[in-house]
Design a protein around this nucleic acid. Structure first.
Lengths: 146, 146
DNA sequence: TACTTTTACATCGCAAACGATTTAATCGTA
DNA sequence: TACGATTAAATCGTTTGCGATGTAAAAGTA
């Protein structure tokens, strides 16, 4: 590959990564719309369904999102009555995020989403080995640069 | 995997995809800052360095970005004197995007970026086979849902 | 105890993304 | 030629993402 070809769009890894990430979110969006949430909001709820009562800082680490992104996002989830935000009493700097009953109940509605997503992606000729290898590589990169 | 585990963050493919995409952009950002551009602006320039004189609609297809994202982004690149925008005379609806001399010159400064990125990612134990397989899968998904 | 430093979170501003709608030019077709 | 449909691009409003900065509480330290 010469210097010119190295700058071709298709020869970047970052570019298809960026596109596929956005396209995947577009697959989720109509399903999440029925639940009244956005994709990043869904990720926060996934984290909370897995482990309720987390500090903003814990969510920040798990989701690789900074406070300046999380704080307004969490306020929106609070407005929609899916979560509660409350200052810790032992450390007034900390804020605990916990699910409301509505937020907990939403989990049942979300349970069908993974299947629907797999259906959408299943049209391509991806086999299970390829999917697993792909996910492994993603996790490896996450650990390398995360 | 039971219903509960299916909703774990780590068992989603979308999640590491979303994180890795953002983390990768963070690796590019300081390098692009030296050129005075953002990551999506860099992608537009990559497309133009590969083929100058493209319609907004062509860029839209190549980059998988809609007009509502591209139009303001292109205006910013125009303000920075990297591109020109001009209405087609044969079809007054169309807008041609072309590189200025400054925009063309920027390509030389950008030539070193791919190497620097590979350096940054090279810390992980990724071999060439894995990288190629990863990229192949990305392109396959792009074609499936794109 | 008085001080500096660190930590946890919030605020501000800008640049994407993108759904929904609008505008103006061109095309199809009767 | 008239006129409805299509097309290319732009505009508007909301939500992210993130760098830079601010703020208040807690921890460290002299």
């Amino acid at each position: 590959m010469n210097d010119d070809e190295r700058l071709y769009l298709d020869n970047q890894i970052c570019f298809p990564l960026y596109v596929v990430s956005r396209l995947t979110i577009r697959v989720y969006t109509p399903l999440l719309e029925e639940l009244g949430i956005t994709y990043p909001q869904y990720l926060v709820l996934l984290a909370l369904w897995q482990k309720d009562e987390q500090l903003v800082g814990e969510l920040s680490k798990v989701l690789y999102l900074d406070y300046n992104t999380l704080t307004p996002l969490l306020k929106r989830l609070e407005e929609k009555q899916f979560i509660n935000r409350s200052r810790s009493k032992s450390d007034e700097r900390s804020v605990y995020i916990s699910l409301t009953d509505t937020g907990k109940a939403l989990k049942n509605q979300a349970a069908c989403i993974p299947d629907k997503i797999i259906e959408s992606l299943d049209k391509g000729d991806m086999n299970m080995d390829e999917i697993v290898a792909f996910q492994q590589t993603l996790l490896k990169i996450m650990k390398t640069i995360g």
